[in-house]
Structures are given as C-alpha cells and as structure tokens.
Design a protein around this nucleic acid. Structure first.
Lengths: 202, 202
DNA sequence: ATTCTATCTTGACAGTGTCAAAATAAACTG
DNA sequence: CAGTTTATTTTGACACTGTCAAGATAGAAT
C-alpha cells in the first residue's frame, strides 16, 4: 500500500470511476435516479464493490459535493483575481455564481441542499470545505464594504449572510423548477444586484 | 355516492386520516422518513389502501403542499387585512413568512422545494394554488411600489420575483440546515428588509 | 513460497412504491 | 326485500433500493 500508482485489479481506479460516473448520472438524470447498484453496474463492478471505497451512499454524495466546492472555488477565485473595478468584479461574481449553480445544478444541490445537510450526514471534510468557502466569501464582503460596494450598515457576517441568501434563493428557484423561464434570469440578477449594492440605490 | 356523509367502512375518512398522519410524520421526522406502507400501518389499514385515495405518493405530497398554500395564504392574508402603515405591514409580512417557513419547514419544502417541482410531478391543483399565491403577491408588490416601500426601478413582476427569492433563500438556508443558529434570524430579516426596501436605504 | 492485506463477489435481509386480482361492505334498483 | 352495481379494502406479487456478512481472489510484503 506504499505504492502511489493505483493500477491494480481489473479496475484501474474505482474511486475515481465511481465519482465520475455518479457525477454524470446525476447531471443527466438527477440525484434521485442515482442508485448504488446501477452505479456499480455501469462502472462494471458488483453491487457492493463501491462500499469498499465509500462508507455508504451519503459518503459518495459528500465527496461529490466537496469536489463541487473546489471547482466553484476555482472559478470564483480566478474571477476575483482579474483586474476589474470592485463594482465590475462583484457583478461578474454574482453572474458566475448563478451560472455555476444552474449549470451544475445537481452538484449545487448537494453542496447547499437538504439532501446532505439536513436529511443526510455531511462529512467532516465537506463541512470544512463549505466553511472555508463561506469564510473567504465573508472576507471578500468586508473588502467590498470598504470599497462602498456593499452596505456598511452591518457587520461583514450579516451582510455576507443576507446577500448570499439572496443569490442562493434565486438559484434555488430555478434549480428546483419553480422558476422555469431562464430568459428572465439576467434581468433578475441585475435587479438583485441593485437591491444588494449601495451605490446603485435610488 | 350521493351521500355527503362519509362514515362508511371501518374507517371514517381515510383521505383525511392519511393527510393528517402524513403531516404529523413529516413534521416530526422529515419527509424522507415517510413511507406509504408505514403510513398505512399507522392509520390502521393495509399497504395498498391509500392508493384508492391518492394515485401515488406524489399525489399525497401534492395534497399536503396544497393545504400548505391555503394555510399560508390565510395567515398572510389576515396580516395584510390588519390596519397598519404599509411599512409596518410589509415588515410583519416578511417576519410572518419566515416564521411560517421555519415552523412548517417540511410543508414549506413540499410547497416550494425540489421534491415536487423538479423530482416529482406537481398536480394541476397544486400548480394552481401556487400560481394564485404568487399572483396575489405580485399584486401586493405593485401596491407597495406605489407606496414607495418597494423600489420603482422595475416592474412589479421583477421586484416581486427578486424580493421573494431573497426571502426564500433565507428560509431555505435555515430549513436545509445550512444555517443553524436561529438566534441570528431576526437580525438577518432586518437586514434583508433594508436591502429590499427603498426608503431605508443609506 | 508464504503470509498478509486490499479489493472484489455472492448471498442475504429488510425495506420501498405500486400493480393486479380477489374479497368485502355499502349504496342503488327493481 | 333481493339482486346488482359501485366504493372500498386486502392479499399476493414484482422489481427495486441500501447495505451487511462471509467468502473468494489478486497483488504486495516478507
């Protein structure tokens, strides 16, 4: 087990294969149509093989969600690194956040949804990833407050909580199929930004 | 079948009993722990008896959600009927909305969540109930715009969509167990109102 | 070559939603 | 009242789920 190379047995890297296939399945058919047995079958392995790589289904989903946090973090981090005005930067962030949420809606649901956080049992590393994401968001909120983009009438935590809640709410309405007409999305985003920012206020 | 009285067979009104028991179960243990079989058992009837009153599980959940719309509508309607300043009225509405969402979180989830709207199959009457609720919300938004409570920089529909999304997002974060500390709630509500309203703006 | 360990499979169990067919209970019709 | 129709409920069955325990196998370590 000291070897790093994992090309053993008739399946190169089951852990990875499982995550990839699972990700594809939920992307195409939704998380409720993902079963451990079908997944094993698709990957070409017996029903219980996955259980040697993930404690249970919940653990597999946690791993997927965690991947989501890293990917989302990369996207949003890259964006913040760009040289933009603070205002532009924030605008792009909001757009990118919603784009990610809608394009990876099933992963987003795992990251921030009931399945894992309430009905399920979020793993420690998932909780850590989520906490890290939130923390760095709050730090940026503080910057944005100094730059007068976000309001100063409350702590970074509160402002961060509420503006994130707003984005999240918008994302959810589309993801959950309550709002369907995505043509309206960009206008809603625009309006949401106006609600949440300081300087655009009437 | 012309008789209105439904006290037939050894079970007075199965439909009603099923809804009540189901409601109690999800309130206490979450919707994922509701099974048709256990429900039948608790009500004291065979496994498949419920299927003569509800086409399937989805239909039963739709009925529960629909009840939720009526109850929520009553609460919020009563509130709007009170004699308050528009500002007070809106504030109370927001608070009542979130109070309902958190106190009936499982029903709220059925009303506005993925289970029925995306993963499931919302019944026509559920869709109607939801549409009606939304429509009357938008009408009120228009009033609030005239009263300068909500901003006039966009149509009632857009303002209604975004402010509702904000409330919904806040509700969801608590319901789904992402935010846990309900002590923070009232401060967040306060801040959210500031974000969303016109006249309190800095 | 032998022991050890990581990986995988087979078998099993309890649980799920729900269909089809049979049984029963009440309502309607003569 | 008797006989038929309709509303309600039950029993049996099927395919599917997550996951545990025990055994088989393949590779690593000695």
């Amino acid at each position: 087990m000291t070897t790093l190379n994992k090309k053993h047995y008739h399946h190169g890297d089951l852990t990875k294969s499982l995550l990839e296939s699972a990700s594809a399945i939920i992307k195409d058919h939704g998380v409720e149509s993902l079963s451990m047995r079908k997944l094993a079958d698709i990957v070409g392995v017996s029903r219980t093989a996955p259980y040697h790589h993930f404690k249970d289904k919940n653990a597999l989903l946690c791993a997927l969600a965690e991947e989501g946090f890293y990917e989302q973090g990369k996207i949003l981090g890259r964006l913040r690194a760009e040289q933009n005005t603070a205002q532009e930067s924030f605008k792009k962030y909001v757009n990118a956040y919603l784009e990610y949420a809608l394009q990876h809606s099933e992963i987003y649901d795992l990251m921030y949804g009931r399945t894992l956080w309430k009905a399920g049992n979020p793993s420690d590393s998932l909780k850590a990833a989520s906490k890290h994401t939130f923390k760095s968001w709050i730090e940026w909120v503080e910057e944005l407050q100094h730059q007068k983009i976000l309001p100063n009438n409350n702590t970074p935590l509160r402002i961060g909580q509420t503006t994130w809640a707003s984005l999240h709410g918008l994302a959810r309405l589309f993801i959950d199929g309550i709002y369907l007409d995505k043509a309206d999305l960009s206008e809603m985003i625009e309006q949401m930004i106006e609600n949440v920012c300081t300087h655009t206020k009437a």
